[in-house]
Design a protein around this nucleic acid. Structure first.
Lengths: 132, 132
DNA sequence: CTGACTGCAAACGTTTTGCACGGTA
DNA sequence: TACCGTGCAAAACGTTTGCAGTCAG
């Protein structure tokens, strides 16, 4: 796993707790603070919430992780990757990444607003196939 | 102002504080808790934060207000209207509503995800004309 | 060996709650 | 008059901070 190199590059030490957070997010895609805490707790019974927060903040500060603010729900975190959108199941909370071509809406938005836009946060709510 | 009728319809009494919150949001478009608090404070010096919260929650519960979760910023509230998108200036924090035609991205999203989607939350970050 | 990380406890900021009083309908 | 809403204070949460001990590099 080359996350190790990436962390070292940013002067973050590769501790078991930190590595596990990264692995959990790699496996699960998106997790909130509580889910991460309980996940780590099973591997490191004495882990503290403060450690979760400190790590999330440290890795978010270097843009290694990103926070996703979801309507009507707690924020989740993910490994930073190329810009993408999210769909959220309002029933089971499952979050999925999707790669949308947003060039059209983006240029519409620029024209309508006269803002120069860069970052976009696009989230759809709905029901996933399983919950239907 | 027919907000009065709308509130009564939902069994919410029209108090001066509550009405002022609605008016402030009508005038300013989007405000966070703190901005609302200080706004009301100038009109009702003894207003309490609890009153702001209770009112925001009550009016959000009946979908009269909506919370907008903005990346890297505090949430703001707005009067609920037809679905629309937001652009946010990362410099001066000005938020603007825009009406985007999202039918294309929406159908793309449905196809890519196999979710049945209804609600969308689309926020762009950038720099407004004044700040450029 | 040194600085960064962990875990604990305390501190902090934000939001909610309980209650007595006051105001809307 | 009967509730609902307000304001205050306290409580409950979620997040951050300080510190001593430990670990990665």
């Amino acid at each position: 796993m080359n996350y190790v190199a990436l962390l070292k590059e940013k002067n973050l030490k590769v501790t078991p707790q930190r590595l596990t957070i990264v692995e959990e997010l790699y496996v699960n895609g998106h997790m909130n603070i509580d889910q991460l805490y309980h996940s780590l707790k099973s591997k490191f019974p004495s882990v503290s919430l403060a450690t979760i927060y400190k790590n999330i903040n440290a890795m978010t500060d270097i843009f290694f992780l990103s926070e996703v603010k979801i309507p009507h729900q707690k924020s989740v975190y993910e490994l930073t990757k190329e810009e993408h959108s999210h769909v959220v199941c309002t029933q089971c909370q499952t979050i999925m990444d999707i790669d949308l071509d947003i060039s059209q809406v983006l240029s519409d938005a620029k024209q309508l607003s006269s803002y120069s836009l860069d970052e976009s946060a696009i989230i759809f709510n709905g029901i996933c196939p399983k919950c239907k």
